[in-house]
């Protein structure tokens, strides 16, 4: 499984809260997109983050990358990276430190590769814009590095002369990956990088992400709502529901024996080829983060909901080594402490 678990984690997120605060005409609104999230990512590990749309996945990784703009605010908690023994607290660091860290140590593979690449400029220009200052070499040497990197990823270096619209969707996504890894960062965040692609292309893009992660030995946070992708890629998996982390553990164990009722449902409802047994959808809808239900945010849809779930929020408890769950049905409140 994940190597180097003995060394300090590369990313430590502690009790992070990030809210969108809107106040207009004297009316205050608060959207608790990330509420009390704690987790860590080890070196050389792929950490999967799963959850449905608007459950706070994107807010979480934005906060981790310190790419926050009002109305999004960090209300509490910390995000600390450990780049080669040098801790960087992203919330406290000044703009210069953050700018120096980005792309060199921490890079980002985005969902819409078309919005990463400037449509009226050649691909080469994107590499210069993103990576030139971090590599710190002269231009011809820099381009040699880029070409060598593309070749390592089985991309033809000639694409540097192409415009984004001349490339297919899968090819553009591969260019976005090459762009994010050219500085060999210690940490990569991938936000739904394969969602817009069809199955065959998706597989080769995922294989490429995995290969490049292995080669440069970086850590990766992989965000997608597609559990089948997580099953095939990630070492550990965190399941988010309505702004909170509800379950975390090694991928194989989560799929084998999910503990939280939401996870149980997600895993059970996955359709499989060769299996036509009826599968149920989950009743109800995800809650609005502006007015989340009191107590456990999953309780209105939960088949196991008890009285305590309606009033108290279940804490994240380590039930097995490396396995954490936030559910009163798994850890009854009396025994939780």
């Amino acid at each position: 499984m994940s190597a180097a678990a003995s060394t300090a984690p590369v990313l430590q997120v502690e009790a992070l809260r990030a809210y969108y605060k809107i106040s207009s005409f004297g009316l205050d609104r608060e959207v608790r997109a990330v509420d009390d999230v704690t987790f860590h990512v080890n070196a050389n590990e792929i950490y999967g983050l799963a959850g449905e749309s608007s459950c706070g996945k994107t807010t979480l990784i934005r906060t981790i990358a310190a790419a926050i703009k009002p109305p999004l605010r960090v209300v509490g908690g910390s995000v600390v990276f450990n780049f080669a023994g040098r801790p960087v607290d992203m919330q406290k660091a000044d703009d210069e430190t953050v700018a120096a860290v980005r792309w060199k140590h921490l890079s980002y593979i985005m969902q819409g590769s078309m919005s990463v690449l400037n449509p009226v400029r050649r691909v080469e220009r994107a590499f210069v814009d993103f990576a030139f200052r971090h590599i710190g070499k002269r231009k011809p040497e820099f381009l040699d590095i880029v070409r060598a990197h593309l070749q390592r990823l089985d991309l033809n270096p000639d694409i540097l002369a192409a415009y984004p619209h001349q490339l297919s969707g899968g090819m553009r996504q591969r260019v976005a990956i090459a762009l994010a890894t050219v500085c060999r960062p210690e940490f990569i965040i991938a936000d739904e990088p394969t969602t817009a692609l069809d199955v065959i292309v998706q597989n080769s893009v995922l294989a490429m992400i995995r290969d490049v992660q292995k080669e440069i030995g970086s850590s990766l946070i992989f965000v997608t709502h597609d559990l089948a992708v997580h099953a095939n890629l990630c070492h550990r998996l965190g399941i988010m529901y309505a702004g909170r982390l509800v379950e975390e553990g090694p991928t194989a164990e989560i799929f084998k024996a999910p503990k939280h009722p939401y996870t149980t449902h997600l895993v059970a409802s996955l359709p499989r080829i060769g299996n036509t047994a009826p599968k149920k959808g989950l009743e109800g809808t995800p809650p609005s983060l502006a007015a989340p239900p009191p107590g456990c945010r999953f309780h209105p849809r939960c088949p196991l909901a008890m009285d305590i779930c309606r009033t108290q929020n279940p804490p994240m408890v380590e039930v097995l080594p490396g396995r954490r769950v936030a559910c009163f049905a798994v850890t009854p409140p009396g025994r939780a402490a």
Partner: peptide, 24 residues
Amino acid sequence: IRLKQAVLSPDAAGSAGRLLAESA
């Protein structure tokens, strides 16, 4: 056949990408 092989199975959990490499 290729299309079917490309479908990622949730049952591959824990393979940490080994099956992915084969299907790719």
